[in-house]
């Protein structure tokens, strides 16, 4: 174990630099601190909700936490409860069996809050939209602030999308029931 530790210290760090097209992201990152502080202090807390996904989007969301993307370095982190969250990251078409759970998770999230629809299914129901068992995209159930395309979205797309959210005008404050 000691060897692994020591080598990790000696080795160049793994986290991806955020260069082009991540150059855009570098610029965003520079403004991130100010934007995030203005809204919520030092960071945004994200609560993930799988509303009926095939689990492909979950795999790539997990990847955000690995050493290459290292979400926490830019002040974004996943939390265990909607009551701790500023952002709901929703994946999957919203199945009818998950609809109420999604609504209640949204209601449990304190204002101000933002909703990200991650993946093609979350945006418009994807291939499943015709089904008797599916309500549609996330927008059919709760208001959506940001959409990230992909089947599933690549971690870099998720990362730049989430950073874009921090730049969004702060007009999007939701309250009331869906």
């Amino acid at each position: 174990m000691r060897r692994l530790f020591l080598e990790s210290i000696a080795r160049a760090p793994l986290p991806e630099k955020l260069p082009p097209p991540d150059a855009e992201l570098v610029a965003l990152a520079a403004e991130l601190d100010a934007a995030a502080r203005r809204k919520l202090g030092r960071s945004l807390s994200i609560r993930h909700v799988d509303a009926g996904s095939c689990n492909g989007c979950e795999l790539e969301t997990h990847a955000l936490q690995n050493a290459f993307y290292d979400l926490e370095r830019i002040g974004l982190r996943f939390v265990a409860s909607p009551r701790h969250a500023d952002v709901l990251l929703v994946t999957g078409p919203v199945t009818r069996n998950m609809r109420e759970a999604l609504e209640r998770t949204w209601q449990a999230t304190p204002d101000p809050k933002w909703v990200v629809a991650a993946g093609d299914c979350a945006i418009d129901g994807g291939l499943f939209v015709r089904s008797y068992a599916v309500s549609g995209g996330v927008e059919a159930v709760i208001p959506v602030d940001l959409r990230i395309r992909g089947c599933p979205p690549r971690p870099m797309d998720l990362l730049s999308g989430l950073m874009a959210l921090l730049q969004a005008p702060r007009a999007t404050k939701h309250d009331g029931r869906p």
Binding site: D50, S53, T95, N97, A101, G126, L127, F128, S131, V134
Partner: peptide, 25 residues
């Protein structure tokens, strides 16, 4: 059953390439 999406219902009547995409999801 929470993630039930009706895959087998969507399969019925689908052409092979759509069905293959569904099966991959």
């Amino acid at each position: 059953g929470y993630t039930h999406k009706g895959v087998e219902w969507l399969m019925a009547g689908a052409d092979l390439s759509t069905a293959a995409k569904l099966s991959g999801r």
